[in-house]
Amino acid sequence: MTATGSHNSLKKQQDFPVGIIEGFFGTPWDMRSRMTFIERLPRMGLNFYIYAPKNDPCLRSRWSEEFTAEYTSALKQLALKIKSAGMKFGIGFSPLGATADSRKNLPVFRRQIKHLAEELHPDYLALLFDDMKISLEHEGVLQNIFIRECLDVLTPYGIRLITCSSFYTTDPILEKVFGKMPECYHSDLLKGLPDSVDFFWTGSKVISTEYTEKDLLLAAEILGRRPFIWDNYPVNDGRKASDYLYLKPFSGRNLIPSLASGIAVNPMKQTFLNLFPLASLRKALETDNAELISEAAAENLKFCHGGSFTDFMGTCTELFASTPVSEITDLKRNDLLRLLDEMLLEKKSALSGAVPADGSITDTDVGETEKIRNELAEINEIKNFLNGKYVFDPACLTG
């Protein structure tokens, strides 16, 4: 490959959408933690962040109510933070029940989309019809109407529209939980929509362990375009998944850049622990070589964790991924909590000594301080996990 060809290939990889969709059920992250977490993402090679918590009522259950000035201001600050980190900002919008009376709801829907576009200036708007009960045979026709209305509002602003249909996988669990898919659902849904409208897809399952060529080509056939992967690893908001922490590197993702239009990762309910799997994502999109993926993850983690802490996390990875927290023995749980408390004291002491007595701070000091703060947050997240704080939310219907 020529030098020019190599440069173009690298640029294409960098431009490929790889980011986060904060779309899990349960208690949303607090804004301060979210902001700090966002600062770490560019180092992992991520280039966008879509805010779409299932438990933000303004974007779901109370979608038709006018946004307060305080709420809009908070989202503006979030957008500014994401863009200042060099990433694109997106907002998710789920108009629950809107299709039941489209004549009444369309004007309200248009007003809300216009407000989001004008006030937040997002790069992406995700229009989400997932996790909604299906009772109308012509649901695809109705959702198509809302997508068209949304596109009409967004186009003048140059905002990219990504939508998620009610049937975003071939996994039969969706019909069991939300109702039978209408016979012409996808043909009705897609009718007349331009190729510029992206569609989320979770793979062959709601939670897919890999994305094969067969899976991705089937998705493209169903959607009439390359899928935009909504990756439900490492999210842990389901009935069973809430008992685990998924810290292992990504795998089985190397075909996504050539057969999909982007990938959005749905993170765990814990905030900073997501840095461990995310450190491997970019390399996992390039290769399926586990050794190379692990090496890349280790290199990325050096920038936000100390070596000893990364080693400690490595000893816990298999335990938390394979053993439900409710089945960890009291002896093992108490040993871990004791060790975590010791580490907590050690890290707090190190943090207090990280700033010189004269108050001068070098770039090295800032880097070390960030590492310690990451580790303090993660220690507390593990403690809370072991103590049962992150329990299953029954609202997660696909759990």
Rank of each mutant, 00 (worst) to 15 (best):
S242G: 05
N8E: 14
F250E: 07
L59R: 13
I50T: 14
C304M: 13
V18T: 15
G359A: 07
S64T: 04
D131E: 09
L344T: 13
D393W: 01
T99E: 14
K114E: 06
E139Y: 10
F67S: 05
K104L: 14
E175F: 08
P356G: 06
E368H: 10
F48H: 13
E375S: 09
L292W: 00
S352I: 00
K214H: 14
D101T: 10
L136V: 03
G140V: 13
L189M: 13
F178L: 10
V366S: 08
L245Y: 09
P356M: 11
I263G: 00
W230K: 04
L46T: 02
L154Y: 02
I159K: 09
P267V: 01
G86H: 05
L255M: 06
F25A: 09
E39D: 14
I372K: 08
T329R: 09
G353N: 11
L340G: 11
A395E: 10
A79Q: 09
E318I: 02
L247S: 03
L331S: 05
P324E: 03
P257F: 05
N55Q: 12
L174Y: 10
L247C: 02
L10M: 05
D341G: 11
K332F: 06
I147Y: 02
L273S: 03
F392S: 04
F228G: 07
K104M: 04
A296Q: 09
D30T: 14
R226A: 15
I50C: 13
I38F: 03
S165N: 08
E318H: 10
G92C: 12
L78H: 10
D215N: 13
A296D: 13
G238M: 02
P394Q: 02
K12A: 14
L336P: 03
F303Q: 10
L46Y: 00
C164G: 08
M313P: 00
C164H: 03
P394R: 07
S204F: 12
F392I: 09
M44V: 04
Q14P: 00
D243S: 15
P267Y: 04
K383H: 02
E22Y: 15
P356Q: 10
G45Q: 08
G92Y: 01
G192E: 05
K54D: 07
L120D: 07
K104H: 07
R160Y: 01
W63R: 13
